[in-house]
């Protein structure tokens, strides 16, 4: 699964940083029918976790109300240099992950 992540490359210790992630996904609601009238199985990204140097800083549980290609934005406090790791799964069991590193000064 393709995703774009944006984390500031550098930050000062204690600074509040903005983290953004966009994932390419159809987010099939499960309410739609195909051309033959058969229901299309629900398939949405149901869970997304973001860890900062191993500590969970953000978790999202999504359902059929979220539009296709979900875009999430949240904040964290820069504490130490390291890595943000994003992991998510959809209803079909497909997993995706993305990572971004940050250098903290001061």
């Amino acid at each position: 699964m393709l995703a774009r992540v944006r984390v500031p490359r550098e930050a000062k210790r204690g600074e509040i940083i903005e983290i953004r992630i966009a994932i390419q996904h159809r987010m099939e609601t499960g309410f739609r029918l195909d051309n033959f009238g058969r229901p299309i199985a629900k398939n949405v990204i149901n869970a997304l976790v973001c860890r900062y140097n191993g500590t969970e800083v953000f978790r999202a549980e999504m359902g059929s109300g979220i539009a296709a290609n979900p875009y999430l934005q949240f904040h964290a406090v820069a504490e130490a240099s390291g890595e943000f790791v994003f992991e998510w799964t959809d209803d079909a069991g497909e997993r995706g992950s993305e990572r971004a590193s940050i250098t903290v000064t001061g």
């Binding site: 774009r4 944006r6 390419q24």
Partner: peptide, 11 residues
């Protein structure tokens, strides 16, 4: 970043 079309550009 918020432009979802950029996902396709990245691809």
């Amino acid at each position: 970043f918020a432009n979802p079309g950029m996902l396709w550009v990245t691809r």
